[in-house]
Design a protein around this nucleic acid. Structure first.
Lengths: 114, 114
DNA sequence: TCCGTAGTTCAGAAATTCGGAACTGTTGAT
DNA sequence: ATCAACAGTTCCGAATTTCTGAACTACGGA
């Protein structure tokens, strides 16, 4: 497996963020990740309720999220641990992620600051 | 020419907004529209400085912006008048447009409210 | 009516997306 | 050591989307 690429904070491009989050499936995945203590493995996030995302598509979604700078992925044994880069991102693009998740009606409790 | 379609405010989808603004050319066009009193005609917005957008591509950009709900277009004689739906949109998706334009470093003076 | 201008539509080439099948890397059991 | 099971990745072909030159439409003025 190729090493996973993660952009440095200063290399993150707004167009990549917007593109990644212009797909409702990816938003659903990202919101779950930002929210619950779901462990963050890929397969734990594949089930959208109305549909189960195929493995290869899912893998691609994670690649898009990762390479846009939205999440960080790390292999841990046999599975992949994914976490959002929320805090970092909010520093670089203040209010952006919050506004987007809110627009989708998917802002998780954890991010509803004061 | 087919009649121009504009979604009603309540039909505007966040994914369409994000998709439309995931293209830096469209962002440049939109930011100019939101900013200066440039008249809002298509051709007035075609020049990006480093490149002139071909007519057909430009027309398509406007279609994407219009059908996502970001702008309103209206024929006025031989030309097309375009204006943003900023205020409306901010009601539906508070802070979204502002955060996006800010992320791109393209928030026009007009929108820098107090 | 005929011309010029603003923008749209068409069409085909190029690029992107999707997802099944095959593959890789890791753990645990025999 | 070998094997099986499992999580996720890569490959590749089909389908969809994007891009843009060329042809076209719509309007206004002479």
């Amino acid at each position: 497996m190729r090493p996973l690429f993660h952009p440095a904070l200063e290399d993150i491009k707004p167009e990549a963020i917007l593109y990644a989050l212009s797909d409702p499936e990816r938003v659903a995945i990202y919101a779950k990740l930002a929210g619950a203590a779901c462990g963050g493995t890929c397969s734990a996030l594949a089930d959208l309720g109305d549909r189960v995302i195929p493995k290869s598509s899912l893998s691609n979604h994670f690649k898009v999220l990762r390479e846009s700078g939205l999440i960080r992925s790390e292999r841990q044994g046999v599975e992949m641990r994914n976490q959002t880069r929320c805090a970092e991102l909010d520093e670089r693009f203040p209010g952006l992620i919050r506004a987007i998740l809110t627009a989708y009606g998917q802002l998780p409790e954890q991010l509803k600051t004061g």
